[in-house]
Nucleic acid binder design. Structure first.
Lengths: 242, 242
DNA sequence: GTAGCACCTATAGCACTGTTATATGAACCA
DNA sequence: TGGTTCATATAACAGTGCTATAGGTGCTAC
């Protein structure tokens, strides 16, 4: 058996590579840095992983199984649509938690490296969608739905990763999520909003808004503000300018 | 002046780099390959571009302006929603035409390298969406709509690039496109498009009015009144719930 | 002219990268 | 004991991005 007090060189290499890859902000990490951090010399790296890329693939595979475990860990709530939301959010969260890993997994697409990774994410999402289909909630095939959802999910996550953490607006995620889900599945409640024939004129828009405000008062304005607002709206609506 | 029979070394470097980058399937391209192909020695590369990355940035910038030119070249049909479809498709097509360039432009995100690129694509899309808003077709602000659309557009394009050209299913693009568009805009052709979570048409009308007011300022309100009015309008336009 | 001056390019080399041929040590089985 | 196999180390290779230095080139000023 091996010593238990210290992990084997192979594990140390994996750990060191993952750590350096996560710290070093996207810039390349050299094999020498890795082997040095793992207190190992070059040949052991090539003995175990064959290649620098082999080592990195192993790191990615590890992170990916972590991702899949997290996905599988999400409980099936019995409400398929709600499950879809959870999986979407979990995907985004994983990307934000491991940005560099995520970029390699989903952003750095070399056409032949990808399948084993993304394909299985796609397959898993397809399972979830199959349950939705079984509940008669899907309007397209689970396969198509999975591809579309995953594509949008990746796009959103990449965009969120790219912008500074402080300025991140998760509303983008929620909004796009609902967009894709509602196109792929039927939500129980339909809301047909009849909209007046859209014309670009200020007056028409003002009239439409005025009419809309009669039935539903927004809570973003206080009552006194709303009163003045409506008065101005009335004035704008009164005469044609544009 | 310079000889006209042959392009200057700087141009030759750009061309050689672009060509090699496009051929060599995503694998790294060395400066020596580039300088040799351009029949130039190393220092001229560093004189003109300072850096290998500087050269690659120049290549990307060139491709990017080509992309933006193509986007700008699309005519405004007068039907804003149809324009959105065209821009989406044009984006995807550009990605499929220049896959390696596209991966660098939108996939290979180094948080600080990105803004100048994606941000301007986002800004342009926002312009198009502003026109849709002016036609009272948007249910969210042009900015939010642009981000969501672009994110989904990128995700779809990356996914299409990643899979073998033969098996590419463009239905994925069309499907996701319609999903995002229908979540962001209302189709006026009497289509019972369901909006998410019962967004009241107040928001639609407010956004439309806001957009209309950008181009024509009514004389019924004083400038100070208008300022406050627009502020309130902005508040109404931003959705409250999730 | 020719001296000066920017600009552009080339020679030769550095430090570093990924990688490997070879050799050494350790563990197991005979 | 000796042999076989696995795991690690020494030392070096070719190739990489990059640059200190120097040599042209064309231009303007005198």
């Amino acid at each position: 058996m091996k010593k238990v007090g210290e992990p084997a060189p192979k594990a140390r290499l994996l750990k060191a590579a993952a750590a350096l890859l996560a710290e070093s902000n996207g810039e390349p990490v050299s094999t020498r840095q890795i082997t040095q951090a793992a207190r190992v010399t070059a040949p052991t790296l090539y003995h175990h992983f064959g290649d620098k890329e082999g080592l990195f693939d192993a790191v990615v595979a590890e992170g990916f199984s972590e991702y899949l475990d997290a996905e599988r860990g999400l409980p099936a709530s019995g409400q398929p649509i709600e499950d879809l939301r959870n999986h979407w959010d979990n995907h985004v969260q994983f990307g934000l938690d491991h940005p560099h890993l995520y970029l390699v997994m989903f952003g750095n697409i070399r056409p032949e490296r990808r399948p084993s990774m993304v394909a299985s994410a796609e397959a898993f999402l397809e399972e979830v969608l199959a349950r939705a289909a079984a509940a008669a909630r899907l309007v397209v095939s689970p396969r198509e739905a999975a591809r579309s959802m995953l594509a949008a999910n990746i796009g959103v996550t990449l965009m969120l990763i790219a912008e500074p953490a402080a300025k991140r607006n998760l509303e983008l995620s929620a909004m796009t999520r609902e967009a894709v889900i509602s196109a792929v599945a039927t939500d129980s409640e339909g809301d047909p909003t009849t909209q007046t024939e859209g014309t670009p004129s200020v007056v028409v828009a003002a009239i439409a808004l005025n009419a809309a405000l009669q039935s539903s008062h927004p809570d973003q304005l206080s009552s006194s503000e709303l009163k003045l607002f409506l008065e101005w709206l009335q004035r704008i609506s009164s005469r044609s300018g544009s």
